[in-house]
Simulated assay, not measured.
Amino acid sequence: MGTSPWIVSDDLWERMEPLLPRKERRFRHPGRKPLPDRQVLCGILFVLHTGIQWEYLPKELGFG
């Protein structure tokens, strides 16, 4: 069997990354450092595929 369906391949990510908006961090009040976009997408796909609640998302996929 292949890779997990929520893992974004390098080829797919190369095609998707230019479509995502770039957001600059504020200098004075930057807030929490954002997670990498690819990691967030994998987390979203994991939740959609497995049907789990967001609070049970593994830390490797960006929660917690």
Score class of each variant (00 low, 15 high):
Met1Phe: 05
Met1His: 09
Thr3Lys: 00
Thr3Val: 08
Ser4Met: 12
Ser4Gln: 14
Pro5Ala: 07
Ile7Lys: 13
Ile7Asn: 10
Ile7Arg: 14
Val8Lys: 01
Asp10Ser: 10
Asp10Lys: 11
Asp11Leu: 02
Leu12Gln: 06
Leu12Lys: 09
Leu12Tyr: 00
Trp13Ser: 02
Glu14Trp: 01
Arg15Ala: 11
Glu17Lys: 15
Glu17His: 08
Pro18Trp: 09
Leu19Val: 02
Pro21Trp: 03
Pro21Phe: 04
Lys23Pro: 00
Lys23Ala: 05
Lys23Asp: 00
Glu24Tyr: 05
Arg25Gly: 08
Arg25Leu: 11
Phe27Gln: 11
Phe27Cys: 06
His29Phe: 10
Pro30Glu: 09
Arg32Tyr: 05
Lys33Glu: 14
Pro34Gln: 07
Pro34Lys: 07
Pro36Ser: 11
Pro36Glu: 11
Asp37Ile: 00
Gln39Gly: 03
Cys42Ser: 15
Gly43Trp: 02
Leu45Arg: 15
Leu45Lys: 04
Phe46Met: 06
Phe46Glu: 02
Val47Asp: 01
Val47Phe: 01
Leu48Tyr: 06
Gly51Trp: 09
Gly51Ala: 05
Gln53Leu: 03
Gln53Pro: 01
Gln53Asn: 11
Tyr56Ser: 15
Leu57Pro: 07
Pro58Glu: 06
Pro58Trp: 08
Lys59Phe: 03
Leu61Thr: 05
Leu61Tyr: 15
Gly62Gln: 10
Gly62Lys: 08
Gly62Met: 03
Phe63Tyr: 15
Phe63Leu: 13
